[in-house]
Simulated assay, not measured.
Amino acid sequence: MGKGDLVLITGGTGHIGFRTTILALEAGYRVRLSVRSQKRADAVLSAPTFKAIASKLAPNAITFTTVEDITTPGAFDNAVKGVDYVIHIASPITTGGQLSTDEYKEYFIKPAVQGTVGMLESAAKSPSVKRVAITTSVVAILPISEAFKPTLTLYNDDSRIPLDEGPYAVEFQAYSASKAAAYNATHDWIEKNKPSFDVVNLAPSFVMGKDDLDTSASGSIRGTNSQFINIALGKDLEGPMLGATVHLEDVARSHVQALDEHVPAGTYVLDWTPDEGEVKGTDWNDVRAAVKKLFPEAVEKGILPATGKANTVPLKVDGRKSERVFGFKYKTLEDQVESVIGHYLEFLEAGKE
């Protein structure tokens, strides 16, 4: 790893990807960002967070390559040419129930698996690639049953589960299956092909933190951040919620640090847990107290009632190994709430509803 090394980042216009891109640039990497269209590239270049560091960057510190369909054979062949590292984040995310059950496999499983394996195959064709870091998820290492009937099993970096072949009753089940399928396919590919480069898998829990590509308060109520905001707005969360969260900053930071050759290859669970001597995860109902403590004026004015409730399913996900390896403590639930809710209030104060 060295200053000026070139890293290809896929999914760089998403929640995790954009913040990872910013931190990679700040760390001195040159970034080649894979995007689906010029419109997405323009969104990056026009983002206030990027503009704030643009003048400090070397010429051509960031360039773009277009990959419209990650399931196409050889989709990343050109993108990986000459790169030193790859951070592969691109993968389908949940839609909030916009799909029918017969669309789940095509939307989730196919691109998750083919996109990941395709990236590995392309990287194997480029002798310059030293390491590939892949974003997976904690749902790739624990059975879907944990979302409804927890066993209080401790899940860690060595946990593996077989593929859930379906049928998938709900979207989250299909999403979880896609993560497990891609994760298992990665291990199978490595064992079969024994590539010259290292592979690091990063498995975050629910990622919470302001999205710098949001442009309005209403626009920020999406993805995982919507859970915190809805609780703050007095809305009850539907269904059971897995008790595991982690700050976006820590996830992005881990992705960049994972390129360091001193970080051993392998899997790292990224999850915050209260520092009370045991792994016990997040209680979503604690968000109410955090909002009241951090934003008392907004609560008093009724802007943030902070009365929403959640059915937290206890989950024991062990992120302590990643803290030791990466050398920092994960930000707390209060830090996560401050980032998400603070950003939401900034939009309201600026009249950007």
Rank of each mutant, 00 (worst) to 15 (best):
D5Y: 05
T13I: 08
G14C: 10
I16G: 00
T21P: 04
L23I: 13
A24Q: 02
A27V: 13
A27Q: 13
S34I: 01
V35I: 14
R36C: 01
Q38P: 03
R40M: 04
A41W: 01
F50M: 11
P59Q: 07
I62R: 01
T65S: 09
E68K: 13
I70D: 01
T72P: 03
G82T: 08
D84Y: 00
H88A: 07
G97D: 03
D102W: 06
D102F: 09
D102P: 04
K110Y: 00
P111F: 03
V113I: 14
G115Q: 02
T116Y: 08
K125A: 13
K125Y: 04
K125P: 01
S128A: 14
K130D: 12
K130N: 11
V139I: 13
I141H: 03
P143A: 10
P143I: 09
I144G: 00
I144E: 08
S145I: 12
F148A: 02
L154H: 10
L154Q: 06
Y155L: 09
I161A: 10
L163E: 03
Y168P: 03
V170H: 08
E171K: 03
A177I: 06
A180C: 13
A180N: 11
A182P: 02
N184R: 14
D188P: 02
E191I: 03
K194V: 11
S196V: 13
G209Q: 10
L213Y: 00
N225Y: 03
F228Y: 15
N230Q: 14
M241L: 15
M241C: 14
T245F: 02
T245R: 00
V246L: 09
D250H: 12
R253Q: 15
S254M: 12
A258C: 05
L270N: 04
G277N: 13
D283I: 13
P296Y: 08
K301A: 15
K301P: 00
I303D: 12
T307Y: 02
G308R: 02
R324A: 15
L333D: 06
L333Y: 06
E334V: 11
D335T: 11
V337A: 07
Y344A: 09
L345Y: 06
L345C: 05
E346L: 11
L348H: 03
E349W: 12
G351L: 03
E353V: 15
